[in-house]
Each structure stands twice: as C-alpha cells, then as structure tokens.
Amino acid sequence: MDLNGVSAVISGGASGLGEATARDLAAHGVKVVIADLNEAKGKALADEIGGVFVKTDVSDEAQVQAAVQAAVDTGAPLRIIVNSAGIGWASRTVNRDGSPHDLASFQKVIQVNLVGTFNLMRIGAAAIAKTEPADADGLRGVVINTASVAALEGQTGQVAYSASKGGIVGMTLPAARDLSAIGVRVNTICPGIIDTPIYGEGEAAEAFKAKLIAPVVFPKRMGKAAEFAHLVRALIENDYMNGEVIRFDGGIRFQPK
C-alpha cells in the first residue's frame, strides 16, 4: 500500500515504539494522529512531524472515537491503525508472602493492553471501511497490533502482561478474517527486548540492560525502536502480509526468570 497522502492513528505514539513509528510514517508522507495520554510529549511530537495530537485513553470508547475522527478530519483517507499503547505489571499469581495476585491490577493490564487494542482496531477499521479501495484488490487499510514475546514465553511474575499480550496474538487471525470482508489487513508484531526510555538511564539501567541482552542470539544487543518502526512500515507496504504474528526479537527465547 502506498503510504504517501494517507492518514494513520498511532496509539502510544508519544514515546518509545509508537514515537519511532510516528516519525517513520510521517517521513514517508503519512498524516499521523498521535493518540496518547502524555499531552506534553504528544503535542511536541505532533508539531514536529506535522501531525495531530489527541489525548486518548485507549480503553475509553469516546476518546478513541475522537482520535479516529481526527484522522478522518485531516482530509487524508484513514488507512493505517497502529496499536502500540500498553502498560506492564509484575506480580506472581500467588506472591511469596502467600497473598494472591491483586485482581484490580490484573484487570487494569487487560483493560489497557487487550481491550484497548481491540477498541482502536474495531473503531479504526469501521472508519477505514468508509474509504474507497486503494487498489485493484480492494485493499482499504492495515491494522498493526503490538504484542510481545512474553505472549509466547511469559516469565515468572508476568501473568497479567502475558495474558494481555497473548490475547492480542490470539485475536490476530480471526480479526484478519473478519476484516478481510472490508479490505483491511491485520498483523501483529511480538517485540523482544527493545531499547526504549522505559529502562531509564545511568549505571544501574545499563547493568540491567546487559542482563537482558544475554539471551539474545544475534545481533547481541537490544532492538532499536527505529527497527520496529521499519518493520511496521514494511508490513503496511507489503500487500500479501495478512493474519500473521511476527517475532521481532534477535532470536531470544525467554527463560522462566
């Protein structure tokens, strides 16, 4: 699919993987709507790349509708949805002190990561369906969801996070089958250890990163957000990629801890 002159909604677009994707797509002619809770960073980035910022809680139906409408209002046909908003949580199913995993925290992670992804996918795809086909195959648009290798090899204490990301993986193919009727492709990326600001800075952060890198096969480093963004763009541009879950992890296989 040709990127130039279309619009996109990117959840979590103010930082990390979402920011890198916003920059990459904007550089290739896409009008980007950054849907994020971080107003300061989101507005600054939108101004920098010529995009639009909409403060968005992805689990809120009205806020997601507003973000999608902002893309429609740009006048450029909405053809791209990228779900990269998400939160993490670390807790065992039963903690060392014998207490059970906090239910509210589990529900929050599911609500943001899984329900939020579905929320933007469904509302965004409904808007994409109103556009004219972009090619002879009837393609109207593309949805790229972000899961994690934790969906496939969850570690100790990742039960909530892995459940949420596993749900995204699980809905990839049925969503692709559902949305093919309106000319929308769906693919999911499962990143491994990617170097984003979430890990912090300083000596302690670098030591922690070195530990994370140890099981990576090759290249022996963390992934780059720009490399993730490149993969997003490749999946959008390659018209035969549909219903796939793609590992993006340097060959890492998570161990229990």
Rank of each mutant, 00 (worst) to 15 (best):
A151H: 05
A210F: 03
I194F: 08
V217L: 15
T156E: 12
E153A: 13
P197I: 00
T131F: 00
A136K: 13
V186E: 09
A150W: 02
M171V: 15
A175V: 05
T172W: 10
T146K: 04
P215H: 11
A175S: 14
T146Q: 02
L179G: 03
A214Q: 15
V149N: 08
V169M: 11
I236L: 07
K209P: 05
G141E: 04
S148T: 02
T156L: 13
G183R: 06
H230F: 00
G183S: 13
M241K: 01
I128N: 05
G243R: 06
P133D: 09
N145V: 11
N242V: 09
Y161G: 05
G183Y: 06
N242S: 13
I168S: 04
K165S: 05
Y240L: 13
E227T: 00
E237K: 11
S180H: 02
V186H: 11
E237P: 03
T146V: 04
P197D: 08
E206R: 14
V232G: 11
P133I: 11
D239A: 15
I194W: 03
P215G: 10
D195S: 00
S162F: 08
R140N: 08
G167W: 04
A134V: 14
E132R: 07
A207T: 13
V186W: 11
S180K: 14
I144E: 05
L231P: 07
N238G: 05
A129M: 03
I182Q: 15
T188N: 12
A210M: 11
N145M: 14
K220Q: 12
G141R: 07
G192N: 08
A226S: 15
I194E: 04
D195L: 07
